[in-house]
Design a protein around this nucleic acid. Structure first.
Lengths: 141, 141
DNA sequence: CAGTATCCATTGAGATACTG
DNA sequence: CAGTATCTCAATGGATACTG
């Protein structure tokens, strides 16, 4: 569906695909890595630790298709391929960098919020099983 | 693994989970919806079009666990539950809003980049099958 | 209305082996 | 070195029916 202006809240608007692309974990890490200039494939794989060969290639192809990065094949032996951000890619990179900073800034808060929440849920489950037991006992009585 | 400061480039750093949380499509849409104040469950489901009951609940629980949103149960009949952003949630919301604006601003560029790329790939596939044919012919000869 | 539970299809993603 | 191709298994996510 054509949809102007782009509306991510509309299921049928293609901008939803764009949202999934730029929101993906691997996309963000790749884009952040390319922020300071062209990077070769191997270095990219080492930099984005944990990414598999498959996901790296898929992410790169996807970003290339969407005009975020450019692939340069130097047609040399040994093979040498570099990836770099386009103009638009750089503007996205600045956003991604902000996201990275946000995570760093609020990391401690989030980790402690998780711990707090998890202990609360655990104690609730405990009291629930107690009331369940009481119910069970009263039905048996 | 404890990891200070948070390093999203490290596979073993828990900040990777945070990255997946804030990067998810549904998270972003939910957070943007809550930006202007508390919203009830039903309205949320209508606003974030295309989300299933299951994904909505899962996303809400996840955001709540990470201290991004707060759930308020009014313990009334008919049931009334509202969700709102925490302080930290609002700061994330501003980032998400920027992401939304970025998508709107670069939407046309991305769509045309896709089309261009797809036709290029299609013509490459065509010429490849031609050279493949030539190879086949030469091997047969 | 808000939420849970279950089933089921589709996709995601790692491991491995192979090509130029 | 860069990349493709399979194979496999786990995770995602949707549809449906059910509870308080």
């Amino acid at each position: 569906m054509e949809c102007k202006p782009a509306d991510v809240f509309n299921v049928d608007c293609p901008s939803r695909d764009v949202l999934e692309l730029v929101g993906s974990k691997w996309s963000m890490l790749v884009i952040c890595t390319l922020k300071d200039g062209p990077v070769r494939t191997g270095e990219l794989r080492r930099s984005v630790s944990g990414i598999s060969q498959k996901m790296l290639t898929e992410t790169l192809r996807d970003l290339e298709r969407n005009g975020i990065i450019v692939r340069t094949d130097y047609r040399a032996l040994p093979l040498r391929v570099e990836y770099s951000l386009t103009e638009v890619g750089h503007s996205l990179g600045r956003l991604m960098k902000q996201m990275e900073y946000w995570i760093i800034d609020h990391y401690d808060y989030i980790i402690s919020a998780q711990k707090q929440h998890d202990t609360k849920v655990k104690s609730l489950a405990k009291s629930k099983s107690q009331t369940d037991n009481r119910r069970l006992i009263s039905t048996l009585a």
